[in-house]
Design a binder for these strands. Structure first.
Length: 111
DNA sequence: CAGCTGACGCATA
DNA sequence: GTATGCGCCAGCT
């Protein structure tokens, strides 16, 4: 792949998250060697704001499985609704069974 | 140019 | 489990 900005890499990984699964900022940041999970959140913020393609940002949560970015979506409930629509159970703004639903970017490398 | 903020993460107390 | 601090880096005031 050519040299891309960190957001492009984040978008790429985010789009690769299997449906019904979730990932974390830390895992993505570490995989892309961004050095900071904040950069991942920022890239996603820009993506949903500008509506860049189809970036399932709702599948990206923090290390605790909490929907920390729900407030950044069109509506605070959109993130949870989308996750539940994909089969991910969300309770109290937290992904249930998160530990099992957690998806690691490195799986792409093994694929 | 300086400082603050922010969809985070981890260590420590 | 809650509170505080540090690192991290881009963007905005």
């Amino acid at each position: 792949m050519s040299e891309q900005s960190y957001y492009d890499l984040v978008y790429y990984i985010t789009q690769k998250i299997p449906l019904g699964r979730v990932s974390t900022y830390g895992d993505i940041a570490d995989y892309l060697s961004l050095g900071s999970a904040r950069m991942v959140g920022w890239a996603l913020t820009q993506s949903n704001r500008a509506g860049v393609g189809d970036v399932p940002a709702h599948r990206v949560v923090n290390s605790k499985g909490e929907l920390s970015g729900r407030h950044n979506f069109a509506t605070p409930t959109l993130m949870q609704e989308r996750l539940e629509a994909e089969g991910v159970l969300v309770k109290n703004d937290k992904v249930q069974n998160f530990k099992e639903l957690r998806w690691h970017p490195e799986e792409l490398d093994e694929s």
